[in-house]
Design a protein around this nucleic acid. Structure first.
Lengths: 340, 340
DNA sequence: CTGAAAGCGCTAACAT
DNA sequence: ATGTTAGCGCTTTCAG
């Protein structure tokens, strides 16, 4: 079933069929033949061979999304939004980089060579520096998703600073004066969250104690270790901000293990929000982001670039939605309780 | 950078280069020229255009994986294993069907038309019946992943029956006599889990009470509703088996809400195992499956079919690993406590 | 053992 | 307004 079958069946030439298929605006066809051809195509169930089309037009209609993991609830939402946008625009999405594979900074160029994708959505993993550097020399357009290289390189990020400020402000409003920070501090976005934390303290006139800001990374173990450190301080915090749900889960677990009650002795609030926030016990207060929009906007921007539309800006910032208050945060204890 | 560039650079014909690239066994080339061409290819950084190759060979080297969701921890593991196997065999994976998109039973054929994928890995969602029926008429090979149509259609599944039997046995060994079942009962695999549950009761000489087997579906809400029903029974169970972690989370949440202590008043055990089991509070006892192998074996089987190798069997069954005992299960209470 | 050439299905430039 | 045709990059048959 090829285009020439359609041509034969309709009695027109392949060229005409092709132009009708692609709504060629320059050279027009009689309305009559147009509908006739369209009908025949539908009857025959013909659909053009994407490889031939791709070969001819040197494009594939596929974009590759590189994510370091797929376990984290945040990524699932991002991927969902990206899928939706891609489909709406007639693109397919190839998912790569998950797990060990993601450790290879050359992955994008390998994918490019092997799959002839038109462009990339990039969320780097552990090898951030090398990976982002490699992106520059890719030879294919890319949009960074929740990552940042420089202002000129297209990226879609969250308003991390404001989001963290908002949720730390929530803790401060509950009367907390000593608030721990558990997050990544090595990557650019991690440091922006710390900046948000500092901003909230500053606007409340609270001092910043570097001993309360701990590089926990982004996993559950980091949350446990970080909470352990914080809770063993002589002047321990009464609240903790965690950079995601895994870290929050680890922190809550460690607090429980040490006999603290959450939220009576220790409030815990988390960045992001999603199904996992509800699964934890207690359910975790967190700042809600439309993470699917993060994925959606990334694809929109990439497709603009691919189709020659100059995007309005190289920097899209997704604002946070609201603070979802759940059982993990409460008023600061009037006096610091002894460890149970 | 095309194959004829390589031919020119090396002084041989394109045909020769192609044969060397593909290790053509029939027509051999001098060892000397072979290495020379190989070196030049490496120097030039040439890699063949997948679209042209695909057009010529009418294959794309891409397989589509259709999963209904990506939130569930089980799927992430399956996808990971599938990715690994695909990469090892030189295939790329296109992910589709996530979210609303998955409601369309015609999705596979649409993907086939649009993307010329070589084959499918299928895990249906809500529209199981229609979707599995559509698979039959696809015109491309497919392997069902954790789904079942009939013995002749290639599938990779878990030993659900034995796995459930094992974990229910664990509950029975803890002294529980009345054990609730929360799972899906409409799909084939759901009923197999129920069969495993019955088998465990039977081998222990316990009666099967239909009132204890509840169709909870597979989400958190179902877990809550199911637990609510079970806990309001006059003769309520002292333990519950949940078909996955979301259902387990809902059940635990509902138990807590009603003032029951887990595991003192109620033990909860879950199917699967994974990171989420640790996040819950209490952490959930569950039966461990190598879910990545489920994905891995599915791809292996599909690629066998694609490459003309007749698979040894159309039915691969992944055995469970072991019961991971965590805090959510304990000895049956000696006397049923009143609701707090 | 190696080169030449046909042709996979499509689009776009050029004819008519 | 429609038809013809070259050629995208590759593999593979057929000659040599």
């Amino acid at each position: 079933m090829t285009i020439s079958d359609v041509a034969k069946a309709t009695g027109v030439s392949v060229g005409a069929v092709s132009r009708i298929l692609n709504n060629d605006p320059t050279l027009n066809v009689r309305e009559e033949t147009k509908t006739h051809v369209r009908r025949t195509i539908a009857e025959l169930g013909y659909s053009p061979n994407p490889q031939a089309r791709g070969l001819r037009m040197s494009r594939s209609g596929t974009i590759a999304m590189i994510v370091p993991e797929i376990n984290s609830p945040a990524f699932t939402a991002i991927i969902l939004g990206a899928q939706k946008a891609a489909r709406e625009r007639g693109y397919s999405m190839l998912l790569g980089g998950i797990g060990e594979e993601g450790d290879d900074p050359q992955l994008p160029s390998r994918i490019l060579a092997r799959n002839q994708v038109d462009g990339f959505l990039i969320s780097t993993g552990t090898q951030e520096k090398e990976q982002l550097a490699a992106v520059k020399t890719l030879g294919a357009p890319s949009v960074l998703v929740n990552r940042y290289l420089d202002e000129s390189h297209p990226h879609v990020v969250l308003d991390d600073v404001r989001g963290v400020t908002a949720i730390v402000r929530h803790l401060i409003e509950l009367g907390h004066k000593r608030i721990g920070f558990l997050g990544g501090l090595r990557r650019y976005l991690g440091t922006r969250r710390l900046a948000g934390y500092k901003a909230a303290l500053k606007e409340a006139g609270l001092p910043f104690d570097p001993g309360l800001a701990i590089d926990s990374g982004y996993d559950r173990d980091g949350g446990e270790r970080g909470a352990s450190t914080l809770l063993s301080l002589a002047n321990r915090p009464t609240a903790i901000f965690a950079t995601n749900h895994l870290v929050a889960a680890g922190a809550i677990h460690e607090a429980h293990r040490q006999g603290f009650n959450v939220p009576k002795d220790l409030s815990v609030a988390s960045f992001y929000d999603g199904p996992v926030a509800e699964l934890l016990n207690p359910a975790v207060t967190s700042v809600l982001y439309p993470l699917d929009r993060l994925g959606y906007e990334s694809v929109a921007m990439l497709v603009d670039i691919l189709t020659g539309v100059t995007p309005a800006t190289t920097s899209v910032i997704i604002p946070h939605d609201k603070i979802v208050v759940r059982a993990s945060t409460g008023r600061a204890p009037t006096k610091i309780s002894r460890r149970a």
